Simulated assay, not measured.
Amino acid sequence: MRVCVYNDQLLGALAADGTIVDLTDLVPEHTSVGERMNALITGWDSLRTPAAARVAAGGGTPEAEATLRAPQPRPRNVFAAPVNYHKHQQEMGGDAGVYAGRQILTAEVRKGFLKAVTSIVGPDGAIELPWPDRRFDHEAEVGIIIGKTASRVLAEDALDYVYGYTPLLDITLRGEEDRSYRKSMDTFTPIGPYIVTADEVPEPENLDFWLTVNGEPRQKSNTSYLIYGIAKLIEVYSEVMTLQPGDIIATGTPEGVGQILPGDTVVLTIPEIGELTMPVVSRP
């Protein structure tokens, strides 16, 4: 199922007839707007069947007439894997790398970092660059949405704790500031347009994906090349932190990262999950 947040922060799902059906009333009436997706994910075991019935029936808002927003606007946490592809490690620290001459440590050592939840933006927004004299890069990633409380989960069981997947961009300021600061600015975590539930992604550890800027190919890879795969990331993070329903894990990016500028259009395509298109602008 492809679930989303649309129009006036309604919960929805893409129906068989190409419309978006409203699921908002499936969560408790007084759930705050920002918590609706968390409530849907938390109650999914009992809500899946009525949601599927609406998807089958259709008759909702035509997709082309809906405003699709960030499909998970308010997770408790956004975890991210630093340098989780070997070729990205090489391009960051090689002779011509951004941090040439330095030892670039992978996720095996650095493990992870946190991004601000307020950095999330959906396909209805834009990537806003705050300063004209600094370099900002695109990073194509897969977003993992946790489906149930996970603590000390083993890798062989980890995928059972996933609710779904979404395209995710980890926009990055290059420089000497701490990683969380450089990646947590407003609009620096675009996601969407849908979360595709895990039952429709049978091989998450073997997903092709690619990114273009203004139609120019920049990044192309597969999740099978991750240093820490999706299941391993859940194991590593849940060993020391309790993952909660709705939390997001960003997998890390492959080689091919590059600078983005105001006026650019960034498109991340993951065939099994969807296509995220984001314009780049100067921050007002």
Rank of each mutant, 00 (worst) to 15 (best):
M1I: 08
R2P: 03
N7R: 04
G12P: 02
A13W: 11
L14T: 12
L14F: 13
A15I: 10
A16Y: 02
I20R: 07
T24S: 12
D25H: 14
L26Q: 08
V27M: 10
H30T: 12
H30A: 13
S32E: 14
V33L: 11
G34I: 03
R36D: 03
R36N: 03
M37D: 03
N38D: 12
A39E: 15
L40P: 05
T42L: 13
L47D: 02
R48G: 00
V55Q: 14
A56G: 07
G59M: 08
T61M: 10
P62S: 10
E65N: 09
A66K: 09
A66P: 07
T67F: 09
T67A: 11
R69V: 00
A70R: 00
Q72N: 14
R74I: 11
N77Q: 14
A80H: 01
A81P: 03
P82D: 11
K87F: 03
K87P: 02
H88K: 09
Q89M: 14
Q90F: 04
Q90W: 06
G94P: 02
A96I: 01
G97Q: 09
G97C: 12
A100Q: 11
R102T: 14
L105M: 05
L105N: 06
R110A: 14
K111S: 10
G112M: 15
V117N: 06
T118Y: 10
S119Y: 06
S119P: 00
G122W: 03
D124T: 07
A126F: 01
A126C: 00
I127F: 02
L129Q: 01
P130L: 13
R134T: 06
F136Q: 01
A140C: 12
A140K: 09
E141K: 07
G143F: 05
I146L: 13
S151K: 13
S151I: 08
S151W: 13
R152T: 06
R152M: 07
A155E: 11
A155L: 07
E156S: 14
E156A: 15
Y161T: 10
Y161C: 08
Y163M: 06
Y165Q: 02
L168T: 09
D170T: 08
I171Q: 00
I171D: 00
L173I: 02
D178Q: 15
Y181S: 15
T187H: 02
T189E: 00
P190I: 03
G192A: 10
Y194D: 06
D199A: 12
V201L: 06
V201F: 08
E205H: 13
N206E: 10
N206S: 07
N206P: 02
L207R: 05
D208I: 04
L211T: 04
T212K: 04
V213Y: 06
V213N: 03
N214F: 06
N214W: 07
E216G: 05
K220I: 05
K220T: 10
I227H: 00
I227S: 01
Y228L: 15
I234L: 12
I234G: 07
I234A: 03
E239Q: 13
V240L: 13
Q244K: 14
P245W: 12
P245A: 11
A250Q: 03
T251F: 14
T253M: 10
P254E: 12
E255I: 08
G256D: 04
G256W: 10
G258E: 07
P262W: 01
P262V: 03
D264T: 01
T265D: 01
T265I: 06
V266L: 04
I270K: 08
P271N: 09
G274Q: 05
L276E: 02
V280L: 05
V280K: 01
V281L: 00
S282Y: 10
R283I: 01
R283T: 01
R283L: 02
